[in-house]
Design a protein around this nucleic acid. Structure first.
Lengths: 227, 227
DNA sequence: TTCATAGTTCGATCTTAATCGAACCATCGC
DNA sequence: GCGATGGTTCGATTAAGATCGAACTATGAA
């Protein structure tokens, strides 16, 4: 009778409001302490601690102790992907909700998805790179063509840490606002931090929003033109 | 404090074991009656009815009454996508579970994802079509090139119902077993039913598994060769 | 009409788990 | 050493909701 793995278990973990708030806060990619997450979830430290251990036990969170603090992050990008997908569904069938707030617009344009970029800009980048022949489908999943790799090197991506990591280089991730995929994986993360380094973009504190400077937008569009 | 839509709500809906069983059963794409779903979830008709109304209310299920029966299906392919993604996560972090059962192998190769094909074969098809230049990324999402459309027509796809439907033609859907995307949307559904028509594949009753005949596999590999 | 089956509604029961305060442990700063 | 802060554990409380049987409605069959 039973075949598939226990989808109910993980859904139930996400299904509690306090835990959902914790997970949503961690979608920013920043590591947060237990107290910060308690505040974020609007709950005492005691209950937050309970939730955090459950989430960690369920494989959704990773924790590392540092001094007397305990920093939590999403266990991996896959968890972020699931959360994005769920947000997409929730947004869709809550059709009657207020559509576009001012902050909402910024979120739709560019936001952090755990450790890489999501939103309109990210989707456009993915399209641009795809039609430029940067990606190749291999037996191990999405990969880079030789030309694509060269182009990324030229853009300033350092492949040495990426190649030695056991994390896949390219991965597609469902986008929350657009109904498309964007680039995740090690390369996706590296590109986002490259944007920061180039001063094209900056994080808005306490938010998933990423703002691009005017210069940054121009450069971005030039680097990733639409076909 | 609140921005994103209520992810916890939908997750909680999926998080109950009985409801998860109901949803899993409907991933087969078949419309099932309330009693059948009650049996599937291992619960009385009374409780099933309660669950079903909650799921429908939450926008996850669609129902249509026919005679004294009430047939339920997933509300749309997006819901199927979310369930697949969740299964992927659940499978991954339930690492210790028995890996590959015999039925599991068949599931990984080819299965129904609500109304289109998923699994290894489906991913390979998506790759093949992609590198053959069938798809184009437009502002409205994934689309077909002229050549791609011609090729699909030649393969026997009738576009008249697809073009008039408000459902998007091409959509990517996260794959449960592979960590990749495969083709969903109207075209994905049309291709699957075309495979049935050509007698390449057949549904295994009471299961999501799709078995390809030896002839079907040959023809499939010929029609969608790997680059 | 009468009976059977599909499905929903209702009320009652019962289990689960979220929550908090308080006590407790660990680490840092002094 | 001593206090202060971050975090977990424990016990008790409480609220939510999953479950069932029984009554009720509606459709179809005889």
């Amino acid at each position: 009778m039973k075949n598939g793995p226990d989808i109910a278990e993980v859904a139930a973990l996400i299904g509690d409001p306090a835990r959902a708030n914790i997970l949503a806060a961690l979608m920013s990619g920043k590591a947060l302490t237990a107290s910060e997450l308690a505040a974020e979830a609007g709950v005492t430290r005691a209950t937050a601690s309970s939730h955090l251990s459950k989430l960690q036990n369920g494989g959704l969170l990773a924790a590392r102790s540092q001094g007397r603090h305990r920093y939590f992050t999403l266990a991996n990008a896959e968890v972020g992907n699931v959360l994005e997908t769920l947000m997409g569904l929730a947004a869709r069938q809550g059709q009657l909700r207020t559509r576009t707030g001012p902050k909402d617009v910024a979120m739709r344009q560019a936001r952090v998805c755990y450790d890489h970029l999501a939103g309109d800009l990210s989707v456009r980048m993915f399209d641009s790179l795809t039609s430029a022949g940067v990606f190749a489908h291999g037996p191990k999943g999405l990969g880079l063509t030789d030309a694509g790799r060269a182009r990324m090197v030229e853009f300033g991506i350092d492949f040495t840490p990426l190649d030695s990591a056991r994390r896949p280089l390219c991965r597609s991730c469902q986008d929350w606002s657009e109904r498309r995929s964007h680039l995740a994986g090690g390369l996706g993360a590296a590109l986002l931090s490259r944007f920061y380094d180039l001063n094209w973009a900056r994080r808005v504190p306490d938010s998933r929003v990423v703002t691009f400077t005017p210069k940054g937008v121009r450069a971005f569009n030039e680097a990733f033109p639409l076909a």
